[in-house]
């Protein structure tokens, strides 16, 4: 190894050590918790420009601004609910991916459960109807039984009178 090489190697080692030290210092700082919170919050908010994307996923300019705003509010100590209220006051409930339960949204919230209940009811009715028809097919016709009994009774009467 020449002197130049040795020097270069030393510089590289030094740089590596510095880099390692730097990452160690960054480590699991409270910032990570904050970032996680912001990420979760942004994934619950809608980007208004590309409406089927969350704020977290969107690259739109406005989404950038709104992310900055969300971060700023969170840094200022606002709670998640306060941040959401801030955006709702400006853009309406539409920014929330989870719309609040209100008189205008009850159908949205109860609809799927209503459909599920309707489906269950239909299923039950069809099952019962099928069961009934199967029972009816298996069991002797009550009318036939009555006719048979009537005929038997008649035979009995005849035999008695004959005897």
């Amino acid at each position: 190894m020449s002197r130049v090489h040795r020097f270069a190697f030393g510089v590289m080692l030094g740089a590596l050590a510095l880099a390692a030290g730097a990452t160690k210092m960054d480590g699991p700082a409270p910032d990570a918790v904050f970032d996680l919170r912001i990420k979760k919050l942004e994934s619950e908010l809608r980007c208004l420009v590309c409406q089927n994307q969350t704020l977290a996923d969107s690259n739109a300019d406005l989404a950038d601004d709104l992310r900055r705003e969300v971060r700023g509010l969170a840094r200022a100590g606002k709670s998640d609910d306060e941040i959401k209220a801030y955006l709702v006051a400006r853009y309406g409930d539409f920014v929330l991916y989870n719309p609040p339960v209100k008189s205008t949204t009850w159908l949205l919230w109860s609809g799927p459960f209503g459909l599920l209940a309707g489906g269950a009811l239909m299923w039950w009715i069809i099952l019962r109807r099928r069961q009934k028809s199967q029972l009816a097919a298996a069991a002797p016709d009550p009318d036939a039984e009555a006719r048979a009994r009537a005929r038997l009774d008649k035979d009995d009467d005849e035999s008695v009178s004959a005897g």
Partner: peptide
């Protein structure tokens, strides 16, 4: 400049 008033007015388009 930074679009902050726009956000206050709910401007998105």
């Amino acid at each position: 400049l930074d679009g902050r008033v726009g956000i206050d007015y709910g401007v998105y388009g």
